[in-house]
Design a protein around this nucleic acid. Sequence first.
DNA 1: AAAATCAACTTGTATATACAAGTAGAATGT
DNA 2: ACATTCTACTTGTATATACAAGTTGATTTT
Lengths: 235, 235
Amino acid sequence: MEQLPQYRKLYEQLRKHITNGVYRKGDILPSENELCNVNGVTRPTVRKALDLLANEGFITKHQGLGSVVNKIPKGIGILSIKGTTSAVGSENLSTKVIVKPKVMQWPENFPFPLTETELESGCIYFERLRLVDGEPFFYDITYIPNINLPRFTSYKLDNVSLFDTLREHFKLEIKGGKQHFKAVMPSKNIQDQLAIKDNQPIIQLQRKLSTNRLNFNFYSELFCNTEVYALSGGF
Amino acid sequence: MEQLPQYRKLYEQLRKHITNGVYRKGDILPSENELCNVNGVTRPTVRKALDLLANEGFITKHQGLGSVVNKIPKGIGILSIKGTTSAVGSENLSTKVIVKPKVMQWPENFPFPLTETELESGCIYFERLRLVDGEPFFYDITYIPNINLPRFTSYKLDNVSLFDTLREHFKLEIKGGKQHFKAVMPSKNIQDQLAIKDNQPIIQLQRKLSTNRLNFNFYSELFCNTEVYALSGGF
DNA sequence: AAAATCAACTTGTATATACAAGTAGAATGT
DNA sequence: ACATTCTACTTGTATATACAAGTTGATTTT
């Protein structure tokens, strides 16, 4: 894999330390100066890594005191820029591909406007069931424009981070996106897949993710059963 | 009001330009170098302002091209660090205080853990109905620890940004927070307040917001009718 | 013993500079 | 007319430096 920028390497290291329990809620991270010395980088680089952690809710910075580790949310931290696999420890979350990736036309009445290029190229479509502690938690339908992604349909996606796959094989990085939340009653199919009891509402989350490739976005639609676990995130 | 840092002034100016339509979706903002020259600041300062805009979904930065303005979501951008009043134009959103601020004990089974200091001091509690284009959209119940907020209960909160009030009168800035989303069926009271038809689920959003004051967080619980407008945000 | 002050840390804000990597349009070559 | 190359922009990454503002604990003063 290609070289990551130093601020990102530090960010991932600290993030892993937090999710692995090296630092726990209430702990104070090493100071910015200490992180400089230990990692051989300068303060703006350290601060950029810490800013990412703060943006995602892992830490809270306090002027004069330090960077305090927050409690990692028990729910699925789905609002961060990272995908779900890295938001919780991968031992809690597993993925089952229900509909394998296939190339098809975009569905009618797609919730996001599509460019002409996207429309013409069709999309790679697949459905995944995500389980937390073995229980179905959300159902994820993904649409990726079928543009310059050779042999994507042959990649295995069970228990694999889609974002990692996109990064490693296609040099695609998620840069941001937007998302819409709605509370809905589930369709029969979703009710079956998520094992939802009658009259239990679910959250429908529609996301458009932008990437480092210009004019290349992809889309996902998730249905989440929030009866046991809330959807959560920091900001 | 006290002096804002330069990066924040630029951020608010650009944000206002975007929400006011000076820049529209698809437009490219002036380059970083141009913003430096025009505003008499340096590139890291400009980049910090642009980073905030990018984090909140207002723009997408593209290396080599520029900063492209995104469409402002039609829904209520409630996931950003700013309060709801500044997420949409204030002409679309109005606020009606249903239960005026009063000091009381924390409710039982509060969804976030509370410190001993918070428990002892009680909380300032109030309820507001938020309307978009005159239609009830969400119901906001707020709990603020009753610590060092003299005469808070005398402040008017109708059609006023709570965050602005906290900033101007008490020097409290929102630094971040966490939030949990659930899909629920509304209680009778919420159904009445939000004019929700039968069997229509809603989103329950519980938020804990951290501030610049150490160990001072406040909390809100929102119920949103997402039938017409989705809850949306950028990231 | 309590209050005030001080020192040494912390993060926050900002400037200055340099080079890498990506994009678009102009210029040149075939 | 089309392809290739070049130029001049853009944002991305990173170092270096300085001072402001906040926090904590030690020290000094009362």
